[in-house]
Amino acid sequence: MATHVITGAGSGIGAAVARRLADRGDELWLWARDAGRARELAAQHPGARTLVGNLAEPERLSWALGHQSPPDRIDSLVHSAGVVELGPIGELTPAVWRSTLAANLVAPAELTRLLLPQLRAARGHVVFINSGAGLRANAQWGAYAASKHGLKALADALRAEEAGQGVRVTSVHPGRTATPMQEKVHQQEGQVYDPDRWMTADAVATTVLTALDLPRGAEVTDLSVRPAG
């Protein structure tokens, strides 16, 4: 039985990954921003355990984790949590830049740093749920794309640094996916949201499990998945 730590397991892709891993009997540790959210996640994913820390404040994650007991070995750390705020560069405030980079880039970097000993012990796998915006930047997407481009750089550097420890690193770049975040994006874009136009979160979860299940000695480094048609 493998042990997985997952952020963003409350909805969307993170929730789909958590369900799929739980269905096959793996042990889940779900990251929650506070105690109330931890109770909600425990109810949503029976049998899962929780860890608490606000990803919007990455400088406090070390303190938060130091007051808890994470697993001794971690087979995978799946970074699925994230935020999005659209707007032209000429109108984005420092507050938007700080909050976006904190949640989407600095928090994954810090959480990975804190859990690297357990990942090394298990010769584990770090999966970053990135975005198509991590490969290209469109108008109105500057802050989000910058955070996701940075996340890809983080993954690439981590892969080079940890290969000798047996830690595998994968970036998954989904296109538009039917999730609550995508609904928010449509609202910001002023568009009507039709989830039937986009991929399901479960389809993206399948790509994550494919990467996790690859036999030892090989790794998926970057994987893009798009809606068909």
Rank of each mutant, 00 (worst) to 15 (best):
N54W: 04
H79L: 13
S76L: 07
G66K: 08
L30Q: 03
A32Q: 07
S76F: 05
P70V: 03
G53N: 07
E57S: 10
R60E: 13
D75Y: 08
R39Y: 04
A64P: 01
L51A: 02
Q68N: 09
A56Y: 03
A81L: 09
R37D: 12
W31I: 01
W63P: 02
S80G: 14
P58L: 08
R60T: 06
A48K: 03
L51Q: 00
R49N: 06
R37P: 06
A48S: 14
I74A: 04
L30C: 04
G53P: 03
A32C: 08
P58Y: 11
P58F: 04
I74Q: 01
R49Y: 02
E59K: 09
G53W: 06
H67S: 12
R49M: 05
R33Y: 00
R73H: 13
H67P: 04
G66N: 09
E57C: 12
L55N: 00
W31G: 00
Q44R: 15
G36Q: 15
V78D: 01
T50V: 14
W63C: 05
R49C: 02
V52L: 08
E40S: 15
S80K: 02
A42C: 07
L77K: 02
V52G: 01
I74R: 00
R60L: 11
P71C: 14
N54Y: 06
S62N: 10
R39P: 07
W63V: 07
L55F: 02
H45Y: 12
A81K: 10
R37M: 12
E57P: 05
E40D: 14
D75F: 07
A81Y: 10
G53A: 11
L77S: 03
R49G: 06
T50Y: 02
G66F: 14
R39L: 15
E57F: 05
P46F: 05
E57L: 13
R49V: 00
S69R: 10
R37F: 08
S76T: 09
W31N: 00
W31E: 00
H45F: 12
A43V: 13
E40R: 15
R60H: 13
P70M: 08
G66Q: 07
R73S: 13
P71W: 13
E59D: 15
L77V: 04
L77Q: 01
G66E: 10
A56I: 03
S80H: 05
A81R: 10
A42S: 14
A35D: 11
W63R: 14
R37C: 02
P46E: 09
S62Y: 04
H67I: 03
P46H: 11
D34E: 13
Q44Y: 11
S69N: 10
L65N: 14
